[in-house]
């Protein structure tokens, strides 16, 4: 395996971006359905359009901002599985670079949420035991909490998240990382960390 694996080999799918707004979309549709249902009884005049307009603006913002952030995050997130280190880059404005030795990795997770399952996606999470260059306080107690509230992309605290992979890609990437862990054992295992 001479070729260095990067995010280009196992890309984060576009459908993952759609997945971000999917729950909001469903709620919005239900809301509109009810709203129109009520509106049918009353007269829908020109004033109704003006009534809708602020809502539309808010919804547009609700849709656009997360997607823009996700697109930027995704295009700024790079990883490459080098010979001995996992090299990661992220950051839209402030750039971060992290280099993790394979031997220090604590575990590899493959998770599928409900919406992941619907879209055939899976997210890969890799853990080591550093606090990612900042204290646990800065990370918002992230190190201590088990599950992330929002589905993250990139590295926060002791976790490296790569969401929105195709299921088979996630499995393949997991296998590659496990192979790397196997090839790079820690020589001195006194601490076990």
């Amino acid at each position: 395996m001479d070729e260095i694996i990067t995010e280009k080999n196992y890309p984060i799918k576009n459908i993952w971006l759609f997945k971000q707004i999917f729950p909001v979309l469903i709620i919005l549709l239900i809301y509109l359905f009810i709203f129109i249902g009520i509106g049918n009884g009353a007269e829908l005049g020109a004033s109704a359009v003006f009534m809708f307009f602020p809502f539309l603006l808010i919804f547009a913002l609700v849709f656009c901002i997360p997607i823009i952030i996700r697109v930027l995050q995704r295009s700024n997130f790079h990883y490459s599985l080098d010979q001995h280190f996992m090299v990661l880059h992220q950051g839209i404005i402030s750039k971060q670079n992290r280099n993790v030795p394979y031997g220090r990795l604590q575990g590899v997770f493959v998770n599928q949420g409900l919406f992941d399952r619907i879209f055939g996606l899976a997210s890969l999470t890799i853990e080591d035991f550093s606090d990612g260059g900042r204290s646990a306080m800065d990370a918002g107690g992230y190190v201590g909490s088990g599950k992330s509230r929002h589905e993250a992309l990139g590295f926060v605290g002791n976790k490296i998240h790569i969401p929105g992979l195709k299921k088979s890609d996630a499995e393949a990437l997991k296998e590659i990382i496990l192979q790397k862990i196997k090839e790079n054992p820690i020589e001195d295992s006194q601490s076990g960390l």
Partner: peptide, 24 residues
């Protein structure tokens, strides 16, 4: 031989793989 693998959850599967050396 090298890892412990646990997978559970029928609807939303969660899978964890841990190397033996990392077991506390």
């Amino acid at each position: 031989p090298d890892f412990i693998q646990i997978k559970k959850g029928p609807i939303t599967p969660r899978e964890i793989t841990i190397p033996y050396e990392r077991l506390q």
